[in-house]
Design a protein around this nucleic acid. Structure first.
Length: 424
RNA sequence: GGAGAAAUGGCAGAGCGGUCGAAUGCGGCGGUCUUGAAAACCGUUGAUCUGUAACCACGGAUCCGGGGGUUCGAAUCCCUCUUUCUCCGCCA
């Protein structure tokens, strides 16, 4: 959510910037400013009357104490007309406030100045591509065949238990999952991230705080009886830890890492590219989150990008880094880098991480602020997060890229965690 | 799930329906003392919105778990929701 101050002061700038996200903000901004000015007018009027009311009420108290009953009664009469006026004004206030809020919520975050204009994945800018030699034969199998061959992941069993997109990991398949999770968490700890293990269901307020609600309601599983949502990413509970909080500046940046299962309904996106592990309703992910000082958030973003890159390099996977264009970015993000790994048998790039700076967009919803030492004023923090990493597509790439005649080679860094070197 | 009690500032903890934004203690910050530190003493100490000033400053509104109500006036009374604690029941 953009701050009302920014909208008031930088109207033209906002409209211009949002065009990069292909968002036409002009009419919404106009509406917001109109609502805002009438809100403020009514508000100051109401406050004036309220102040008068408080004064008279205080007088009545004093008069009664002094036993001046008649004068007290007179003063009471005065308040009744004030009361009516205040009521009629504050009744007007509520719908304006609501309208204002629904309008402000419609505005996406401003893209960073380095974000390229564009309409979709084709306009993303390749920042880096890192090649690793892969030797696989022409008869190499895609991962959905490999997992059957070695019996390590069972989709049919998942269908029996739950439905499509809920695989069952078996034997070495399950151990590989566990190994990756532990590897990712240990690496994070080494890089200064504090581990969190949050609930994987959240309430409505948390869903709103990070921006999933109200827009993406249909993308989350909803436990309606208790009005809880299954999290689509650990970003939601971990970032919401800092909801309604005022931090000391010297605590920043806060670095958290969390492993959680993630649940996505993927309504409407079921199509051609969803075979095997490419798209699931439940998957495992390790997420990194930073709460940063606004002056240093882009330094944090770069650090996170470097960190994620390091993980992929350690796993010896070919990858590329993309800077997303305006049209491909999320509603809440100011700058996003996507990481894709090459899946050799499918012969395609798979997105395994998305690292974003949300600047103060989430913080404004979350009301997460900080205070400089000795300073009276609070400022909004910047929030950032990134996958480090999402498991299924990493697994898919490892299986496909590392397949040999005698089985699938486990990347060296994982062997201490798996306890075996081959899946065969 | 049943019965009862409670929810106040960073924490602890007062608070007859009328100068209560809230006593007091701790903590924090500033100062005195000290070569330095501790102790002691003195001072200071929240948030949001808003008006004049627009650096420092001054004023107003709102906030005592959330929402609603009674009243000229609510931290204080009533309703409701949430959370916590105690007891009972059930249970990994």
């Amino acid at each position: 959510m953009l701050t009302i101050n920014l909208i008031r002061e930088q109207k033209e700038f906002i409209i211009k910037r949002l065009k990069i996200k292909n968002f036409e903000a002009k009419s919404i901004v106009k509406k917001i400013l109109l609502l805002d000015s009438s809100l403020r007018k009514i508000q100051s009027k109401t406050e004036l009357l309220q102040g008068e009311m408080n004064r008279v009420s205080k007088e009545i108290g004093i008069l009664l104490k002094d036993g001046k009953l008649k004068e007290a009664e007179k003063a009471k009469k005065k308040t009744s007309s004030l009361k009516v006026k205040i009521k009629s004004l504050s009744d007007k206030l509520i719908p304006i406030e609501n309208n204002l809020r629904t309008e402000i919520i419609k505005l996406p975050n401003l893209p960073h100045e380095t974000v390229p204009k564009g309409y979709g994945a084709n306009n993303n800018v390749k920042v880096k591509e890192h090649k690793v030699k892969i030797h696989i034969s022409e008869s190499a199998l895609p991962h959905w065949d490999l997992i059957k061959k070695y019996d390590i992941i069972d989709f049919d069993l998942g269908i029996k238990l739950t439905g499509a997109g809920f695989p069952v990991y078996k034997g070495k398949g399950a151990k590989l999952q566990r190994a990756l999770i532990r590897f990712f968490l240990d690496e994070g700890e080494k890089a200064g991230y504090t581990e969190m293990m949050p609930p994987i269901m959240v309430n409505e307020e948390s869903g709103f705080g990070t921006g999933q609600l109200p827009d993406k309601e249909g993308q989350m599983y909803h436990a309606t009886l208790d009005n809880f949502y299954l999290i689509p990413t650990a970003e939601v509970p971990v970032t919401n830890i800092y909801r309604n909080i005022i931090l000391n500046a010297d605590k920043l940046p806060i670095k958290n890492i969390a492993y959680t299962p993630c649940f996505r309904r993927e309504a409407g996106s079921w199509g051609a590219d969803v075979r095997g592990l490419n798209r699931l309703h439940q998957f495992d992910k390790v997420e990194i989150v930073q709460i940063a000082h606004p002056d240093h958030s882009y330094k944090c973003l770069n650090e996170m990008v470097k960190y994620v890159e390091g993980l992929i390099i350690k796993l010896r996977l070919p990858y590329r880094i993309l800077r997303l264009c305006g049209g491909d970015m999320s509603f809440t993000s100011a700058l996003t880098y996507d990481f894709e790994v090459w899946s050799a048998a499918q012969k395609r790039w798979l997105e395994v991480s998305s690292v974003s700076n949300f600047e103060s967009f989430q913080a404004n919803r979350l009301k997460c602020r900080f205070k400089e030492k000795g300073d009276k004023q609070t400022r909004l923090v910047h929030t950032l997060n990134g996958s480090a990493l999402a498991l299924p597509r990493i697994v898919a790439a490892i299986l496909e890229n590392n397949q040999t005649e005698s089985g699938i080679k486990i990347p060296k860094v994982l062997i201490p965690y798996t306890g075996f070197e081959m899946i065969n």
